[in-house]
Amino acid sequence: MASARGAIERTLAEIGHVLEQSLFAETLSRQPGLLQALDPRVKIVGLLALLVSVSVSRNLWVIGGLYGVALALAVVSRLPVGAFVRRVWLVLPFFTGMVALPALFMTPGPTLWSLPFDWVITRTGALTALFLLTRVGTSVSFALLLIWTTPWNTLLKALSVLRVPDGFILILAMTYRYIALLLGIVDDMFLSRKSRVVGKLSTADERRLLAASAGALLGRSLQLSTEVYLAMQSRGYRGRPRTLDTFAMTARDWAWSFGLVALAAVAMVVGQVGG
């Protein structure tokens, strides 16, 4: 894991990655496609219902089937299917795969496969690992469907369908908006510091730079929060947040919300049958 890249470079790379990812999602969500065209409230309710049905399923086939549904929705929404599959299944082995690996050997159960050096994979172990991997992979896929087909500000407003209060929605909106700003500020801080240093920073220097950046960022955040409050006040804000959405349910939206929820309900019932 030792790498030539220092902590600063990695942080910069991660910031770049986050910005890229959010731009990617934003671009995708504005392209034509089935899910993109649906009312965001339908998507939230429908995809959450499917997510829950993945979560409660005791049957691998049902989870597999639900992954199929996710793939089909990605295809009809004209999402880049390669990226959709890769994003889930290339990352998963590193995290969940590593977690699941020992379970293959450690879960007591009938032998499925004997390996050299007396290592034994049990049937139960294989099943439990499969459950974990497919469940996580399918859940992430449904979350991605939501994120990739809904612009974040639309998604936010649609949260009101889950009875999230206006004030909380405004907080989430402002947080997201200022994350973008602060990321830019950190980026500039690190880049300007790096440009003044020849070669690699020492670890101690890096630590000092990180602490100083975090401290400076806190100062800037506090200052922004005061100023933003003034800006809100100036435009008539008196502590009662309001949002305006322009959502309108069409017959198609109703049909899809019924369809997705019904599908989730069926999956939930069938999923209770073990297998």
């Binding site: 909106a173 908006r177 100023e227 800006a231 809100m232």
Partner: peptide
């Protein structure tokens, strides 16, 4: 109505 010097302060919505 006041238009702030810093647009990042003024534009706080989504």
């Amino acid at each position: 109505g006041l238009v702030f010097q810093d647009t990042d302060v003024q534009l706080f919505n989504a």
